[in-house]
Design a protein around this nucleic acid. Structure first.
Lengths: 247, 247
DNA sequence: AACTGTTCTTTGACAAATACAATTAAAGAA
DNA sequence: TTCTTTAATTGTATTTGTCAAAGAACAGTT
């Protein structure tokens, strides 16, 4: 789209043939992925509660630097590779994931963030429905645990920023549904909202605001020990996906 | 903050001393600035209208590639330079601006965007009050004109994304006020909103929603040919700046 | 001095969205 | 049957948003 098929004058052709890339300061770029999902935790066996919690995928580094520490899955951007290609490659190799929703978060470029050399990280947020994934090589960690861990590089800070972004976008986009299973109850959905926003919501208000995005499946939960709930699925808005989501 | 003062084991020290940065794929990074402001256009001398319009700063390239084309002010990130440092340097040299509000927009990394080599652009949006600037080396262009121009590289696309971001953030942040003079009328402010959103707003509704962000100066306009308007200034919210604005 | 055109500013009526308390519904468990 | 738990609804008050219409102040014109 950008520089292909444009008119190049002879002077520019001359210039380009003389251009020596190696003479210029060069910086390596990595793509790091913050893969976020929700999963049920069996926190209390006596009362058979299955509260959900927000989870992020981390990998254990088996090379220097930060050998043995956990870090976000990531890898170097090849010279002929777009960020999205790097992201796909990295996700596939380090987590086994493919075809998941991702968007660019922020580019972290402080000079000392990597002890090896100047390495800039272009971070992507990916949202997945954990129940449909099969992870290999990485582990899920609850977001509450992560501030207590000492992640490699500036990855603690990157995770922080990712959660801020999620909080900021949850209200005016439909991104949450990338983390939901195909079918879910309104209470389950509300719990995910509460996890991301970090506060309780009123059931009646939540139900009212969210219900035009939902479609009744006709099914109900059962064996829950209380009144069954209606099961819904996400109803794609008529005008296609939200403008804020495409990028 | 990130990798300073951390415990480095002897194995890591050994590893780092052997590390050869030149062996890795390297990519150059530029920072490009989308400097946005509003200014009055004398569009119609007969009726003495002074409508405002959204403006962006562009510079004429006097080097290959795209010699003679207009582009966003930008420059290469030095090996020991943060993006913010590069941005400051570039803004100062190419536009004469200093100390203006800026935030990272997006990082553009398609492989063919620069004919010289692989160059990634980390784009920043900067918002200024044009009335308080003194530009040297760059020119203001109305945003309506820019799609008709053929900017260097993928800068047309970058400008598009910047405007999208502005539209998305204007409603839930106070960033517009970075583009406003210290004192202004509600109609002037509304016009800026309308320029960014690309649609008309209802004066009564706008007035009601915006007025808790404003503080009356007690002054009034005069000689306007119609009822004078009250002059306001921005009232900083009690809790400091909005969370979305930081960094 | 009165009239006119302009647009800033305010009002009030109405609709829609939201907040919150209180109630009803439907299970399983004791 | 009764109790417990969570689902779902209802109703009311409050806030917020939409919209039309009227009033206010000034410059220019008659």
């Amino acid at each position: 789209m950008s520089s292909k098929n444009r008119a190049v004058d002879p002077g520019e052709e001359e210039f380009l043939s003389q251009y020596r890339p190696e003479e210029y300061a060069s910086i390596s770029i990595t793509v790091d992925a913050i893969v976020v999902g929700v999963a049920k935790d069996i926190t209390d066996n006596y009362r058979k509660l299955d509260r959900q919690s927000l989870k992020i995928l981390l990998v254990k580094r088996d090379n220097y630097p930060y050998k043995g520490s956990y870090s976000l899955p990531g890898g170097f951007v090849g010279e002929k590779e777009t960020f999205e290609d790097t992201l796909k490659r990295v996700l596939s190799i380090k987590t086994g994931l493919s075809d998941i929703y991702s968007e660019q978060l922020y580019t972290f470029g402080s000079v000392e963030r990597d002890p090896r050399m100047r390495i800039v990280s272009c971070a992507y947020i990916s949202l997945v429905d954990i129940s449909r994934t099969n992870i290999t090589g990485a582990e899920w960690f609850a977001v509450e645990e992560i501030p207590k861990m000492d992640l490699a590089f500036d990855h603690n800070q990157i995770v922080e920023e990712a959660l801020k972004r999620l909080r900021g976008k949850i209200d005016y986009t439909d991104i949450v549904f990338h983390m939901m299973p195909v079918e879910f109850t309104i209470s389950e959905l509300q719990e995910v909202y509460e996890l991301i926003l970090g506060k309780k919501l009123l059931p009646a208000a939540f139900r009212r605001t969210i219900s035009d995005k939902l479609e009744d499946t006709g099914k109900m939960t059962s064996n829950a020990g209380h009144r069954p709930s209606r099961i819904f699925r996400y109803k794609m808005p008529s005008g296609g996906l939200d403008d804020y989501e495409s990028q």
